[in-house]
Amino acid sequence: MSLSRKPLTMVCGKEVGPVGFGLLGMTKPWAPVEYPVAIKVMKAALEQGANLWNGGIHYGTPEANSLHLLKYYFEQYPEDASKVVISIKGCFTFDNGPDGSPEGIRAAVEEAVRVLGGTKTIDVFELARVDPKVPIETSVKAMAELVKEGKIGGIGLSEVSATTIRKVQAIHPISAVEIEMSLFTPDPLRNGISDTCHELGIPMVAYTPVGRGLLTGAFRTHDDLPKDGFWRTLPRFQPEAFDQNIKLVQAVEQIAKRKGVTTGQVAIGWVVAVGAIPIPGTTRLERAIENTKAASLTDEDLAEIQKIIDTLPICGERYGGWMEKYNNA
């Protein structure tokens, strides 16, 4: 039996490439780069076919986030506005968590539209997390009104369960579901999310497909992690967890060497092969090009990778702390 599944790549009626591009690392506090440098990387990704771009209002500050970068890009390259499908997460802050109220959703969308200033329409607006204080039906109906008004092209969801996906789809078509998926986080293949999305014809977008950089081989030991980086706050990057988790990277490296590709390309190729659209992010032009060239994996490769996943369990929660409760809600 084949372990592969063709990704669904029609988002809001537009065909997107098998690999997209994530804007998270382009803004503070992650890995800020100057806009002229950033847009060169974005342009290179687009030229390689990565035309699904994913950002967030909370990726940065109110004065400098994904939307400001996108506005700058489309001011320089207005001809690309029709080529790119953008998906923007909102209604979430790291201080207060999610806000799925109709008022909060409308305010977020109107602010996003204001910042873009007519340079690009919002193809998909995503709830970054489900708000436990607001029924998901209420949130979705508010988003559906914004679709009717033409402020957004479609509704997206992030970190939702299969049950939530079915509830929402019964109210309004879902344009995309964003989940964390990588060789470190194959959970959507086990918890019904992947099966539900494919059954209902909903594209599945996978963030952190290279395990926040660990699957690129950028970090060989715990000491390689930046001293003040985000990584050191995450359970999977603590010293005792890191030593276990790097074993999976080393096993995948052997497949990459045999195929003449990078470990990151195998990791991204696996996400494509199991039926999702990976959205790796980078600030480096050469890495942006590399990421679009996902490794082509045979059924034998996939079976070997599955054995690695089964025999080298990942140590540590994805986020830990208060963020963990919003996963797959």
Rank of each mutant, 00 (worst) to 15 (best):
M26C: 14
L52N: 05
D123Q: 07
M42A: 09
V113M: 05
K293V: 07
Y326G: 06
W53R: 03
I289E: 12
Q76N: 12
G150L: 08
S296Q: 14
E110G: 09
V85Y: 00
C315R: 15
S87A: 15
M1P: 12
G260I: 09
I105C: 06
T283R: 07
W322S: 13
A108T: 13
Q254C: 06
E145P: 06
E159I: 02
E15A: 15
L3A: 12
K43E: 15
G97F: 08
T121H: 07
P209R: 06
C12Y: 00
L70N: 05
G117M: 03
P209V: 02
G281K: 00
P7F: 00
E286S: 15
P62K: 12
H68E: 14
A295R: 00
F219D: 04
G156S: 08
S161D: 01
D301P: 02
Q306A: 14
D301L: 05
G269L: 08
A108Y: 04
D223P: 01
R212L: 12
K293I: 12
R232Q: 06
P278I: 02
D123S: 13
E34C: 03
N327W: 09
S161H: 07
F219K: 03
E240C: 02
D80H: 09
F230E: 12
P29I: 05
T164G: 00
G55D: 02
G100R: 05
L46K: 08
K151S: 11
P98S: 13
F74W: 02
K259G: 07
P186D: 13
G211K: 09
S175D: 05
G55W: 00
G275R: 02
F92I: 07
D99V: 06
A112Y: 01
Q76R: 15
V109C: 08
T208D: 11
E178R: 07
K89S: 09
I86W: 02
S161F: 01
G20W: 03
G118I: 09
A108P: 01
I86Q: 01
P102E: 08
T216H: 05
E199T: 11
N191T: 06
C315I: 11
D80M: 04
R236I: 01
S4V: 09
D228H: 10
P98F: 10
N51R: 04
K14A: 11
T93G: 06
V19I: 11
V85H: 00
T138R: 10
I136A: 03
K148M: 09
P62V: 15
V252W: 05
E47G: 06
G281C: 08
L8A: 00
T27S: 15
A241V: 07
H172W: 08
G97C: 12
F242P: 01
F184W: 15
M26Y: 10
I308S: 01
P62M: 14
P132H: 09
Y77D: 02
E145I: 12
Q244L: 13
L285W: 03
A295I: 09
K133L: 14
V37K: 14
F125V: 06
A303Q: 15
T298I: 07
H222S: 12
P78C: 10
T119E: 11
M204A: 09
T196C: 03
R258I: 05
E149F: 10
D187N: 12
T282P: 11
K83H: 13
T298A: 07
G211M: 04
A162T: 04
K307C: 08
A128Y: 12
T9H: 09
I152Q: 01
G22A: 11
T262G: 10
